[in-house]
């Protein structure tokens, strides 16, 4: 059968052509194609890896942020509390101070009033004394304007003296 008997010429040609195809395609087609494919796959893989890395980084950053925010919040709370406390203390202190001041002032005022009163009373007493002496003097002068009366008085005084 011709069908299953390979022709010599065709064998030779097929060998030459197939070798040429292997060589030409290997050099000018498969090499750039396979390397291009590999480059692209590598770049896609690295891009995916980078994205993953960025995602975890982002996650870390967000959690860091959250932590920071929480810290800040608690710090604020603490500061507010401290401030509140200080303010309260200050207020208390001021109040106490103010009341003591008032008390002191009241005391002082009272003292001043007292001393003023004393001095006023003293001056009134003096005045009264002066007035009384003046009045007494005037009365005496009037009493003792004539001789009779002077003698009478003198007699009275003497009598009184004698009595005593």
């Amino acid at each position: 059968m011709d069908l299953i008997k390979p022709e010599f010429g065709l064998l030779i040609w097929q060998t030459i052509i197939f070798l040429a195809i292997i060589f030409v395609l290997g050099k000018y087609a498969w090499k750039p194609i396979l390397s291009g494919l590999k480059d692209r796959e590598d770049s896609i893989a690295s891009a995916l890896g980078e994205a993953e890395k960025a995602r975890t980084e982002m996650q870390k950053l967000t959690s860091d942020n959250q932590k920071l925010l929480d810290e800040a919040r608690s710090e604020r709370e603490k500061i507010l509390k401290a401030a509140q406390k200080t303010a309260d203390e200050l207020r208390e202190e001021a109040k106490a101070k103010a009341s003591s001041e008032v008390n002191k002032m009241l005391e002082d005022a009272r003292k001043v009033i007292e001393s003023e009163k004393q001095s006023a009373i003293a001056s009134i007493k003096e005045q009264v004394a002066i007035l009384s002496v003046e009045v007494a003097g005037k009365i005496l002068r009037r009493e003792l304007e004539n001789k009779d009366r002077q003698q009478l008085l003198a007699a009275d005084i003497i009598r009184e003296l004698k009595v005593n």
Partner: peptide, 30 residues
């Protein structure tokens, strides 16, 4: 010795040209 370019050889040569044309242009695209 018959080394003629028979119908099959011609067809193989066409396939050679076709393969080279197709895949070098694919390579260029890459």
């Amino acid at each position: 010795w018959d080394f003629s370019i028979t119908k099959n050889v011609a067809s193989l040569l066409i396939s050679f040209l076709l393969l080279v044309f197709v895949f070098t242009s694919v390579a260029k695209a890459y």
